[in-house]
Deep mutational scan, measured.
Amino acid sequence: TTVKVNGTKYKFDTPEEAQKFAKKAADKYNLKVVVDGDDLRVE
């Protein structure tokens, strides 16, 4: 599972880890998590 934040992709072994990271990033930058198929985007 990958998470894309500000054009940078981060790869995670499990969707749970990816979800946690995406949520933290979204909170930090005051953005929202967008599900894109198997991957997540923070925008």
Rank of each mutant, 00 (worst) to 15 (best):
D13H: 09
L40T: 03
T1E: 01
A25F: 15
V3L: 02
V34D: 04
D27V: 08
K28H: 12
D36S: 07
F12N: 00
T8Y: 13
D13Q: 11
N30L: 06
A18C: 02
K28Q: 10
F21S: 02
N30S: 07
F21N: 02
F12L: 02
K11M: 12
T14L: 04
K32W: 08
K23T: 08
K23M: 09
R41E: 05
R41G: 04
K4T: 15
V34E: 07
D13N: 13
K9H: 11
E17F: 03
T1C: 10
V42T: 02
L31S: 10
V42W: 03
D39W: 09
T14K: 04
V34A: 05
L31N: 05
T14M: 03
Q19R: 13
T8V: 15
N30F: 09
D36A: 07
L31G: 15
Q19T: 08
P15V: 12
V5R: 00
T2K: 04
F12D: 01
D38C: 07
F12M: 00
V3M: 00
Y10R: 03
K28D: 10
K9S: 14
A18Q: 00
G7H: 07
V35H: 09
Q19N: 08
E43Q: 09
G37I: 04
K28I: 09
D13M: 09
Y29P: 05
E17A: 10
V5Y: 07
G7M: 06
K9L: 14
N30D: 12
K28F: 14
K23I: 08
D39R: 04
A18N: 00
K4G: 04
D39V: 14
P15H: 10
A22C: 03
N30W: 08
P15D: 05
T1W: 14
L40F: 10
L40H: 02
P15I: 12
N30V: 03
V33E: 02
D13I: 07
E43A: 08
R41K: 11
K23Y: 09
D38L: 13
F21C: 04
N6T: 03
P15W: 14
K11S: 11
K11F: 14
G37Q: 05
T8R: 15
A25E: 11
Q19F: 15
A18F: 01
E43M: 10
L31H: 09
A25N: 08
D27I: 09
E16C: 03
L40D: 02
A18V: 00
K4L: 15
T8S: 09
N30C: 14
V33K: 00
T1N: 08
E17V: 03
V33T: 03
